[in-house]
């Protein structure tokens, strides 16, 4: 890997929020495309962060920081991206279900997916099933990620699943759930397609669905 790209990767990995801008700027000045910087610098750095999180070396705060590091430079990179060359991977809708306003986990997933080339449509928190399905129709997204932290609100997942059936679009979308009160068993119970234990798991799941689409 080129030295400058390697330094971007290291900056993400070491959560260097003060250094990342200059390093990305250097890559751009050297002629690297935004796509190269995202794939070989930021994406690889996030892979390392994910591995450290899964190994117990990094904690949730470190994932949040990694997201903040990436957020520092994504606007600059997106601005320079040629829409024709931009990665054409699936659109993913993310939302925290109706009645729940927790967003950190969802935001981390959004950052990881965006950094890996997915077009993320983040509908925010406390989102009704109707709004989610409307967004599916409008964007043509094939994957819906639902976050729920409050156990009292898990019924929101079933509502999305049932309404997707009622609208005749259930077989067009994959529904992935995650959040503190979710589990594989809950995923089955609610009729969703997959359960992501953490942001890196969510990425693996979305990659799998994307490859098989």
């Amino acid at each position: 890997m080129n030295d400058s790209l390697r330094l971007v990767c290291e900056a993400v990995d070491t959560l260097d929020i003060d250094g990342i801008r200059d390093l990305v700027q250097r890559c751009l000045e050297e002629g690297h495309t935004p796509e190269e910087i995202i794939e070989h610098g930021i994406g690889k750095g996030l892979d390392l962060v994910g591995k450290k999180f899964e190994a117990g070396e990094y904690f949730l705060a470190d994932l949040v920081m990694a997201g903040e590091v990436v957020k520092e430079v994504m606007p600059v990179l997106k601005e320079r991206m040629n829409p024709v060359d931009a990665p054409r991977r699936q659109k993913v809708i993310l939302a925290t279900v109706e009645g729940d306003i927790h967003e950190i986990g969802k935001n981390i997933v959004g950052i990881i997916l965006s950094a890996n080339g997915y077009e993320v449509v983040d509908l925010g928190v406390d989102v009704s099933a109707g709004r989610i399905l409307q967004a599916v129709k409008e964007t043509g997204a094939g994957i819906v990620g639902l976050s729920v932290l409050l156990s009292t609100m898990v019924g929101g997942i079933r509502t999305v699943v049932e309404e997707a059936k009622a609208h005749g679009i259930r077989d067009r979308i994959k529904i992935v759930i995650g959040g503190a009160c979710t589990s594989r068993a809950l995923c089955e119970e609610m009729g969703a397609d997959a359960y992501g234990e953490n942001a890196m798991d969510a990425l693996r799941i979305v990659n799998g669905f994307s490859e098989n689409a």
């Binding site: 959560l15 929020i17 705060a61 949040v64 920081m65 903040e68 950190i104 935001n107």
Partner: peptide, 11 residues
């Protein structure tokens, strides 16, 4: 907010 607090703890 958690994100601001995390940034403060780190920085």
């Amino acid at each position: 907010g958690v994100t601001a607090l995390v940034r403060l703890a780190a920085g």
